[in-house]
Amino acid sequence: MAMTIHVDIVSAEGAIHSGQATMVYATAELGEVGIAPRHTAFISRLKPGDVRVQNEQGEQEHFYVSGGMLEVQPHVVTVLADTAIRARDLDEAAALDAKRRAEEALAGHTAQFEYAKAQAELAEAIAQLRAIEKLRKMKG
């Protein structure tokens, strides 16, 4: 029996994957890493990209993560996946948006229209992401 390592991929909104693997590949902050069983303890931020999990039958499963953390211990790999695209300026924009909404709501103006527009844009972006994810899966 091949040596295996346990892999958990979890996001804040739920568990995505859990199982045994012979090899795990991920896009870490400083480049792609491959994690074999009994890898030494390692922790890194993840860049947007996919996480590939190779199971005992040699099949690869792909998971798209838009960032997060990778934690490795000799027998467990944990991917703490972000569900949202994170970047300093994007977060900043979200923060400003939240502030602006508070000010507007208190001033009595409703930005319902803009909100609807933003929501539509968000939906579009999510759809694009899904498409990319599918493409990646097909390629891999």
Partner: peptide, 12 residues
């Protein structure tokens, strides 16, 4: 609820 909706307010 999605976590991305909460990033902004929490960051503030």
């Amino acid at each position: 609820p999605h976590i991305e909706d909460l990033i902004g307010p929490v960051k503030v």
